[in-house]
Amino acid sequence: MRVAVYSTKPYDRQFLTEANPAPGHRLSFLEPRLTPDTVPLAADADAVCAFVNDDLGGGVLERLAALGIRHVALRCAGFNQVDLRAAERLGISVSRVPAYSPHAVAEHCAALVLALDRRTHRAYNRVREGNFALTGLLGFDLHGKTVGIVGTGRIGTCFARIMTGFGCRVVASDPHPSEECRALGVEYLPLGPLLAQSDIVSLHLPLTPQTHHFLGAAELDGMRDGVMLINTSRGMLIDTVAVIEALKRGKIGYLGLDVYEEEADLFFEDLSDQVLRDDVFSRLLTFPNVLVTGHQGFFTREAMTSIAATTLGNLTAAERGEGLNLVTAAHVAR
């Protein structure tokens, strides 16, 4: 199968190429993101391979269908960037990578918790400047703290396992409780009590119409003063403007983000020689108790190997007319 691979970085080329000898697909690696303007780059392809910030709205899908594209292979778990109803109408099948390494994201989430707690990112910069003072670096013991996990799928469950290892009390909110979490001693609560009791709140939810701005001003007001909030799932789960207001008044004491509402114009690119035009994001960076990473939670060798293998397997299945890891319009209503 001839595949136009959009949003290609050197690591994408490396892992997809390493996984491709057996499938033998003809991969055309394209650095630009998929947009209405870059659709023509897929003119000779049978399928496109896309990532989290590629545009797969109805307009783009119509243009792809006109080129003869019949399959979109997402090399990610999320599919909120795809107009699945339009894809279904146009006869374009869409596959994703439903699971790669839950450990990768869960461990990155734990890394954000530890870095914010012990201010290791600030200590690193201080020491490099010859400043060995401890003032302003006071942390707290994780042992005995209450960690609230919203969403206990594979990643949330893995994070629960890590936090119980630190001796934390772990509570969770999920309409479909995990028996593995329960076996760990995790207590399931409604969202309100979870937010009110938790010293640390971590989000592990997909982005759907129902979870857009899942945490807004009202939910933030229901949290403990000085709470630590972590989001490694999808940026639009939280209302960033409301979060900034909560930071300003001390309701949020620590904020760790690996995702951001408007990350499509920022993340995965080197913008170090440019002025950031996103005033909301720039405001976030002014807080000393905020730590932002550029959507790297998935970025481990094990996860990238798994993503590449699953993506190519999905393409092989599509070539054979088989359905593997497909997402359809029915998923939107879930």
Rank of each mutant, 00 (worst) to 15 (best):
P102N: 08
D117I: 01
L112W: 06
A111I: 08
R96E: 01
A106H: 02
L112N: 06
V97I: 02
G91P: 08
A87N: 10
S93H: 07
L112V: 11
L116H: 07
T120V: 10
V97M: 00
A106Y: 05
A86W: 03
S93L: 00
A99F: 07
A110K: 00
L116P: 10
R119N: 09
R85L: 09
D117P: 00
R122M: 13
R89M: 06
A87W: 07
D117Y: 06
Y100T: 05
H103P: 05
P102S: 12
N125H: 13
H121K: 07
P98C: 11
V113H: 05
A87H: 13
Y124C: 10
R85W: 09
R85M: 09
L90Q: 02
P102D: 12
S93V: 15
A123F: 01
R96T: 15
L116I: 03
D117H: 06
V94S: 01
V97Y: 03
C109V: 08
R85K: 14
A87C: 08
L114Y: 09
S95A: 15
R89E: 03
A106C: 00
S93Y: 00
L116W: 08
E107R: 04
V94I: 14
V97L: 03
A87V: 15
L90G: 06
H108L: 14
L114K: 08
S93M: 02
R96G: 10
I92C: 01
A115T: 15
A99K: 09
Y124P: 02
A110F: 12
R122T: 15
A115G: 02
A86S: 05
E88T: 14
S101Q: 05
L116Q: 08
L90E: 07
R89P: 04
A123M: 11
R96I: 15
R122K: 12
A106Q: 01
A104K: 02
A104S: 07
S101R: 04
A123N: 04
Y124H: 14
R119D: 07
A87T: 07
E88Q: 14
P102L: 12
V94L: 00
A99H: 08
S95R: 02
E107V: 12
N125D: 15
Y100M: 11
Y100A: 11
A106E: 02
P98Q: 10
I92P: 03
A99L: 14
L116R: 00
H108D: 07
R85V: 15
H108R: 05
A86T: 12
R89I: 13
S95C: 09
E107S: 10
A104E: 05
L114A: 10
C109N: 11
E88G: 15
G91W: 05
R118W: 03
S93D: 11
E88R: 03
S101Y: 06
P98K: 04
E88M: 02
L116C: 06
H121Y: 15
Y124T: 13
T120L: 15
L90C: 08
H121V: 01
Y100E: 12
T120R: 05
T120C: 11
S95G: 12
S95V: 15
E107I: 13
R89V: 14
A99S: 14
Y124S: 12
A111G: 14
